[in-house]
Amino acid sequence: MPSETPQAEVGPTGCPHRSGPHSAKGSLEKGSPEDKEAKEPLWIRPDAPSRCTWQLGRPASESPHHHTAPAKSPKILPDILKKIGDTPMVRINKIGKKFGLKCELLAKCEFFNAGGSVKDRISLRMIEDAERDGTLKPGDTIIEPTSGNTGIGLALAAAVRGYRCIIVMPEKMSSEKVDVLRALGAEIVRTPTNARFDSPESHVGVAWRLKNEIPNSHILDQYRNASNPLAHYDTTADEILQQCDGKLDMLVASVGTGGTITGIARKLKEKCPGCRIIGVDPEGSILAEPEELNQTEQTTYEVEGIGYDFIPTVLDRTVVDKWFKSNDEEAFTFARMLIAQEGLLCGGSAGSTVAVAVKAAQELQEGQRCVVILPDSVRNYMTKFLSDRWMLQKGFLKEEDLTEKKPWWWHLRVQELGLSAPLTVLPTITCGHTIEILREKGFDQAPVVDEAGVILGMVTLGNMLSSLLAGKVQPSDQVGKVIYKQFKQIRLTDTLGRLSHILEMDHFALVV
């Protein structure tokens, strides 16, 4: 994948999101292997301009796509893939009243899908469409860049269908997702969380590099694949309309690839034109409109599966009536509230959605109805927002919020430890010299600072030695090549209790 991002070429006709291997024109390309080798690009942008032909009021008969309808489940399912879809609609009884809503608040519980998330729908649909058009064949390999849930859905379907599955996901995604993927037989590649989507090191860039190296491999490409919004247009939206008897006044959905909100909203605009569509985008993402909503100094966020630093091709923002931004604290607070007060075992993005819903639905009156999409299960986040310690460490809970008995030293300040200034190293000294210094002084790690004293990161003896043994660096290389740029900081005025929580999850903390 090139470091400079080429513009994806656009073909003359058809839909841009065809499933299957992508040609340089962004659509299915038939021909000899030699032709494909000559024409197939190194990668295709996940934010390529959409060429979708959908228009409100256009006859369904003019759609270029294969459409399906929700099917009634048999008493005995032939395999677990038949437990994807037909998820329950559940009334939220307490939270709406707590925040003064007059309307009825309903939750579409997508964590009841077989793999635990709304992404099971698009995973199965992308595979079925690729099999139907002859792209996927027995023994082929599926590769997908994902925040985890699409990966789980694909790995689940691949396990049943017999495909090899490789999932490329950023490091910030939970260990629970990784464990589930491994249990399903998927191979996992992790990428830096802070890598831009168009960087060769991003999950998108690495996935395309693997595709170019592995024979008979395919990126189904949830960011561009029409099967993504079509899955929701054909099934999720129809289920909502049936469950609500066609009567709903507002739908609120958090947005990642945009397939969920695009597919549902398009069908609702056709069948229930008075329904307002509300999009939820986390602070630090750029999906919301108008652009002024996205202006923030924050560039990272903890909530998973929603928000991006690019506009995915499948996201149709014209069908969203209003956007709201959400933050991590309210997302996790509301997710825990949904679990504790409503018994809905949902993930953090569901918290984002409901946090926005109780604001947006203030305009609705008694007798009206708001539906929220709860995308995934708490299963993926047992060591994250479900953990009091994690919430404390991230600053989303305060010590006084917890009532468990603490040891005698818990409320003492870090400054009472009488710490001395640490050994520091410059980023320009060599790895070999740094190892000598650390061994001589008896230290395992040291902060790396520039000549102005600005902290650049941390270097550890173990990481340097393993990097040297693996051949990633040489003793003569500058130590700046092996620094940890993500590390926890703590102030002298913070409590030892807070430091204790940090050290339970990290090997060190830097006192500043």
Results as ranks from 00 to 15, higher is better:
residue 72 K to D: 09
residue 89 M to C: 06
residue 93 N to L: 14
residue 133 D to V: 12
residue 108 K to S: 04
residue 151 G to Q: 00
residue 264 I to C: 14
residue 146 T to G: 04
residue 71 A to N: 11
residue 81 L to S: 07
residue 213 E to Y: 03
residue 42 L to Y: 10
residue 142 I to R: 01
residue 210 L to T: 07
residue 82 K to A: 09
residue 149 N to C: 02
residue 179 D to G: 09
residue 35 D to K: 06
residue 82 K to R: 12
residue 90 V to Q: 03
residue 113 N to A: 03
residue 226 A to D: 09
residue 189 V to N: 06
residue 202 S to G: 07
residue 63 S to V: 05
residue 132 R to C: 15
residue 22 H to N: 13
residue 104 E to W: 05
residue 11 G to A: 15
residue 112 F to Y: 06
residue 73 S to W: 12
residue 89 M to L: 12
residue 103 C to R: 03
residue 236 T to D: 01
residue 176 E to C: 03
residue 162 G to C: 03
residue 45 R to K: 06
residue 253 A to C: 07
residue 220 L to S: 02
residue 68 T to E: 11
residue 5 T to H: 07
residue 133 D to Q: 11
residue 133 D to T: 11
residue 237 A to I: 00
residue 41 P to S: 11
residue 212 N to S: 14
residue 224 R to N: 09
residue 134 G to P: 08
residue 181 L to T: 00
residue 82 K to M: 10
residue 132 R to Y: 03
residue 60 A to G: 06
residue 45 R to P: 10
residue 256 G to L: 00
residue 251 L to H: 04
residue 42 L to I: 11
residue 233 Y to K: 04
residue 233 Y to Q: 02
residue 145 P to W: 00
residue 253 A to W: 02
residue 229 P to A: 05
residue 228 N to Y: 00
residue 24 A to K: 05
residue 264 I to E: 02
residue 243 Q to P: 03
residue 103 C to A: 05
residue 18 R to Q: 15
residue 180 V to N: 01
residue 202 S to N: 07
residue 153 G to M: 06
residue 212 N to G: 14
residue 176 E to L: 08
residue 214 I to M: 09
residue 247 K to C: 13
residue 257 T to G: 01
residue 269 K to W: 03
residue 183 A to H: 08
residue 54 W to D: 06
residue 161 R to L: 04
residue 130 A to F: 03
residue 41 P to M: 09
residue 101 L to Y: 04
residue 51 R to P: 06
residue 253 A to D: 09
residue 248 L to S: 04
residue 86 D to N: 13
residue 13 T to R: 03
residue 198 D to E: 09
residue 219 I to E: 03
residue 37 E to T: 06
residue 40 E to H: 11
residue 236 T to N: 14
residue 37 E to W: 13
residue 148 G to P: 01
residue 117 S to T: 06
residue 73 S to R: 12
residue 20 G to D: 10
residue 216 N to M: 02
residue 265 A to C: 05
residue 59 P to G: 05
residue 239 E to L: 00
residue 150 T to H: 01
residue 153 G to C: 02
residue 214 I to C: 04
residue 107 A to T: 07
residue 140 D to W: 06
residue 264 I to F: 12
residue 272 C to M: 12
residue 33 P to T: 10
residue 163 Y to K: 03
residue 169 M to K: 07
residue 137 K to G: 07
residue 202 S to F: 06
residue 6 P to H: 08
residue 63 S to F: 08
residue 29 E to G: 12
residue 240 I to R: 00
residue 189 V to F: 03
residue 75 K to D: 04
residue 22 H to C: 14
residue 202 S to R: 03
residue 82 K to S: 07
residue 189 V to Y: 07
residue 4 E to Y: 11
residue 265 A to V: 06
residue 186 A to Q: 01
residue 133 D to S: 04
residue 187 E to A: 08
residue 121 R to H: 01
residue 80 I to C: 09
residue 227 S to V: 06
residue 54 W to N: 06
residue 124 L to V: 05
residue 80 I to M: 10
residue 271 K to M: 11
residue 85 G to I: 03
residue 182 R to K: 11
residue 260 T to S: 09
residue 86 D to V: 15
residue 179 D to Q: 02
residue 166 I to E: 04
residue 163 Y to E: 02
residue 107 A to W: 01
residue 254 S to V: 13
residue 82 K to N: 15
residue 203 H to D: 03
residue 248 L to Y: 02
residue 147 S to L: 00
residue 41 P to E: 11
residue 204 V to L: 15
residue 120 D to P: 07
residue 161 R to Y: 10
residue 60 A to C: 10
residue 55 Q to G: 12
residue 89 M to D: 01
residue 251 L to V: 14
residue 246 G to C: 01
residue 12 P to W: 08
residue 226 A to R: 10
residue 240 I to A: 01
residue 59 P to Q: 10
residue 127 I to S: 07
residue 269 K to E: 04
residue 170 P to T: 06
residue 135 T to P: 05
residue 144 E to P: 02
residue 220 L to M: 03
residue 49 P to F: 07
residue 211 K to M: 15
residue 128 E to H: 05
residue 245 D to K: 04
residue 186 A to E: 01
residue 234 D to Y: 10
residue 74 P to T: 13
residue 190 R to C: 02
residue 237 A to G: 12
residue 63 S to G: 03
residue 11 G to I: 03
residue 63 S to L: 02
residue 79 D to C: 08
residue 202 S to Q: 07
residue 225 N to L: 02
residue 44 I to H: 12
residue 204 V to A: 11
residue 264 I to P: 02
residue 92 I to M: 11
residue 270 E to F: 10
